[in-house]
């Protein structure tokens, strides 16, 4: 599989909604290239425009401007029937699953094939295989109401894969699930990406989902892409306020330190040096203490990263010495003016 081939190319996507309180610019010119075979995360706080963006990829929401090119086809230029045809190459799953409540799991998975006029017997056979793959071989004749949230999402995944799509769009697919179930569903998505080579695009507001399975991530804020890059890079050194808000606002204990602070630094260390008492030895070597404001460790794609927010002494020379000491230990140090 050619890893660097672009499968989806969004250029200058804009979308404005008119509401009772005036117009809302949901997307302000989004450019995004998604590579074949990758798991791409789009993260943002609610209202950032990420759900609108994912709907623009299969034109459930038609952008006001820009172009959506998938596999060299410009979706905006397609006729209604051409677009319907193309949509079969793009599977989609949703936060609320959106299964047909009056149909069994098996009938739900058969549904896209029924629409595509796949012969009934073939459709049933494929649906059975897919349900087996997602681990629901024994629930084929259950109705959605008889299934748990995780099981419903598995049915939805099987349904999305029925037409062998090249792309799978996941719109907050795990947001309605508990942490354990989320893990299982994410594992399944990872497996689908690895085994079938399907490009997966994940929309989420949870950093942990991105950390768990994404290769690259785009942080979207206020209708624009704030940051874009490999997950570990964006996590290690978020450059924008939006990025920092998402990366730091999760699970670390810094609530008491909100607001502007002086002489505040963020240090990030990885596996190679996380086992050593780096900060301790720095303090001994420099002969002065530092104030630790927050600390945590995370694992991104199997690698452990740790980060700390520290406040250094007032003495500028001493401060320089400490920073140099840490940098010499291969630790990323950056000044932050806002904790």
């Amino acid at each position: 599989m050619e890893q660097n081939q672009t499968i989806i190319s969004l250029k200058g996507i804009t979308k404005t909604f008119s509401t009772r309180n005036g117009t809302v610019e949901a997307l302000k010119g989004i450019d995004l290239d998604i590579k074949r075979g990758e798991i791409f995360g789009i993260i943002g706080l609610s209202g950032a425009g990420k759900s609108t963006l994912v709907r623009c990829i299969n034109l459930l929401e038609r952008p006001d401007g820009g172009s959506v090119v998938i596999n060299d086809t410009d979706l905006m230029s397609l006729s209604a029937s051409g677009l319907r045809e193309k949509r079969r190459e793009i599977g989609m799953i949703f936060q609320q699953f959106h299964l047909l409540m009056q149909k069994t799991a098996l009938e739900n998975v058969c549904f896209p094939m029924e629409i595509a006029k796949v012969p009934k017997a073939d459709a049933k056979k494929r649906a059975e295989e897919l349900l087996e793959m997602v681990g629901l071989a024994d629930r084929m004749y259950s109705y959605p109401a008889q299934l748990s949230g995780g099981q419903k999402q598995r049915v939805a995944i099987a349904r999305a894969l029925a037409m062998s799509p090249q792309v799978l769009l996941c719109d907050e697919a795990t947001s309605a699930l508990d942490p354990n179930t989320t893990k299982g569903v994410l594992e399944l998505l990872k497996e689908i990406n690895r085994k079938m080579g399907i490009t997966v695009i994940i929309i989420t507001h949870e950093m942990k989902v991105i950390r768990e399975i994404c290769h690259r991530v785009a942080i979207i804020s206020d209708g624009a892409i704030a940051e874009l890059g490999k997950v570990e890079e964006v996590f290690r050194a978020p450059k924008t306020d939006a990025g920092r808000a998402l990366v730091f606002h999760e699970g670390d204990s810094r609530e008491g330190y909100d607001g502007p602070m002086e002489r505040c630094y963020r240090i990030v260390f990885d596996e190679s040096n996380s086992n050593e008492p780096l900060l301790g030895s720095m303090m001994i070597e420099c002969g002065a203490p530092v104030n630790i404001l927050a600390a945590n460790t995370r694992s991104i794609e199997g690698k452990v990263y740790g980060q700390m927010l520290i406040q250094l002494p007032k003495d500028a020379a001493l401060r320089e010495k400490m920073i140099a000491n840490l940098r010499a230990k291969d630790i990323l140090v950056e000044e932050v003016d806002h904790v």
Binding site: N58, L60, L83, R84, E85, K86, R87, R88, I90, M92, F94, Q96, H98, L99, L100, M101, F111, P112, I115, A116, M163, L169
Partner: peptide, 11 residues
């Protein structure tokens, strides 16, 4: 949402 899902399948 169910209608949207069907639309996303090309119905």
């Amino acid at each position: 949402g169910v209608i949207e899902a069907a639309e996303s399948m090309g119905a």
